[in-house]
């Protein structure tokens, strides 16, 4: 079946099908960026594994950061079905030619930030990702199904951390509020620029890669999150948040995207550290990867 017919019938495009080059390129760019975000995202939370305040929390956090490596793997595998190589994608990340989500360029300054990342950042990611489970490209959609299943544990553990802090000692509650204050606006920015300014959106919608606009998803996230904040007993740092009966949605203040664009340009608080950490891990591991490849080659030779 022809590509256009497939899309028109809401069918799935599979790896060896014919597809327009631009469709392929867009998918590679998006899936790679998504995969890079998962593995860079290991760092801000990984920052607290060694200091987690209870052994239970330590175990949960280790399992969560491990999941992120797993999610990165699922996504790189999905990208590879498009004829690219994971090693090349990693090179492009390391060389700064491919991006990852800017949210991970913010530091995790306190334990509560681990909670805020789980609740807000993973919450926003889920809102973004659930529609991707129906993305027109089969391998990406299947990877997202798996990821979304696992992410729901991530969001809940974040909520639980903040709930415990918010109902704990005053210093703990202050820690939770501070984290929410710092992560709220960057979380809203995760949905990307407003629809009017978004360069890729329209084409991606037409291709069935994207199912809802940036602004629609952002609104969905706000609507979901405001009542949860009330349960937590924490305030979202936006005085303009109020229920709008007419719209059937919460109104909220304008997001200042100048900061997002600065972070994307590389001027965020942690851009350099995140990349240096990632590149160092890759370079320090080269001798190990080479050893395993050499060992395998020797075995193959001996067997031949």
């Amino acid at each position: 079946m022809h590509f256009e017919e497939l899309l028109a019938g809401d069918g799935r495009v599979e790896p060896r099908d014919e597809m327009p080059d631009a469709y392929r390129r867009t998918l590679v760019r998006q899936i790679a960026q998504h995969a890079h975000s998962e593995i860079i995202g290991m760092q801000p939370e990984g920052n607290w594994i060694s200091r987690a305040p209870s052994l239970r929390r330590k175990a949960i956090l280790m399992a969560k950061v491990q999941d992120e490596a797993g999610h990165g793997l699922y996504l790189y595998a999905a990208a590879e079905t498009l004829g690219v190589d994971r090693a090349d994608l990693l090179d492009q990340l390391h060389g700064g030619r491919q991006k990852y989500s800017s949210i991970f360029n913010y530091p995790t300054l306190t334990w509560a930030d681990v909670g805020a990342i789980g609740w807000l950042v993973d919450g926003a990611a889920i809102v973004n990702q659930v529609p991707l489970c129906r993305c027109s490209y089969g391998p990406y959609a299947r990877a997202m199904v798996r990821i979304c299943k696992e992410e729901s544990f991530h969001q809940r553990q974040g909520f639980e951390i903040l709930h415990t802090l918010a109902h704990g000692a005053p210093a703990q509650k202050a820690m939770a509020q501070d984290a929410v204050d710092r992560y709220w606006w960057p979380s809203l920015m995760m949905f990307g620029p407003p629809d009017d300014d978004s360069t890729h959106s329209a084409q991606s919608m037409a291709w069935g890669i994207k199912r809802f606009s940036n602004d629609d998803l952002r609104q969905r996230f706000v609507d979901m999150t405001v009542p949860q904040a009330e349960v937590l007993g924490l305030t979202l740092p936006d005085p303009e948040i109020r229920w709008n009966d007419e719209r059937g949605h919460y109104d909220f203040g304008a997001v200042d995207f100048t900061e997002l664009f600065e972070v994307i340009k590389g001027n965020g608080p942690c851009n350099r550290e995140r990349m240096a950490h990632r590149v160092a891990a890759h370079e320090d591991g080269a001798w190990v990867r080479e050893a395993a490849a050499a060992y395998s080659a020797k075995r193959a030779e001996a067997a031949a």
Binding site: L73, A77, R86, R142, R289, A293, Y295
Partner: peptide
């Protein structure tokens, strides 16, 4: 089939 991964050999 659930997905794919990279490994140097069958054991790993």
């Amino acid at each position: 089939h659930v997905g794919s991964l990279h490994a140097p050999d069958a054991e790993l």
